[in-house]
Amino acid sequence: MATEEAGNGFNIHPMDQFEITNLFGGGPIHWYSFTNATLWMGLAIVAVILLLVVGTRKRATVPSRSQSIAELMYGFVYTMIEDVAGKEGLKFFPYIFTLFIFVLISNFLGLLPMSFTTTSHIAVTACLAMAVFLTVTALGFYKNGAKFLGLFWVSSAPLALRPILAVIELISYFVRPVSHSIRLAGNVMAGHAVIKVFAGFAGALGIWAALPIVSITAVYGLEVLVAGIQAYVFTILTCVYLNDALHPSH
């Protein structure tokens, strides 16, 4: 039922690349098993260490290439938080930077051929989004108390409309983690699946395989863009939600 198994040469399994497997000796996957997801998360940590710790170890005033990248990302996230969530949001800079760097590095690592993309899994992105959602909600109530509920009571709207708007706002508030997580996972998954489908065409078309290969190249370029933009979007939405928690005046 999963894929078309007819005998016309097409044998495409676009979703197989997202399979989670036990790297050491098969068997069922327990919570502690060392899977390919574990491996690529570990590689993400290694990449972050290489870029942000080893790359900056010289503390040069005139930065090297890797130090420039590290400083660029630092300044990028820093100004983003400052612009969107204000000065108070800067307290959460390490937290947001962790999310940003994890999503960004995972997206880019996932673009390596034969790699596994951890951010293509709903479980991972949902965890990230729920972490943001719970933190922001708790922070909103901690900082503003009951006034945080004013977020749902649109005081600029006519009085008759306010209850309806409150229901809509409430729903949209609880949809936030869903869209936050599915946007990231869906984008990454879609790009990889599309590349896989084109690769399947290339396998079946013989001499005409050049066409899908060109398409793969184009889609790959788009995917590189999407990988960066989705990390950016994930981070900036985190900042927007944080801003709502810090300044709930609607």
């Binding site: 999963a2 969107v84 869209s179 599915i182 869906g186 984008n187 979007v233």
Partner: peptide, 30 residues
Amino acid sequence: GAQTATLFIGIAFAEALGIFSFLVALLLMF
């Protein structure tokens, strides 16, 4: 320049719904 962030937020919200429909298609297929 100052509104680039708003642009991306808007694009992200608009795109999310497309991703939802893609997800529905995937769910139906697989």
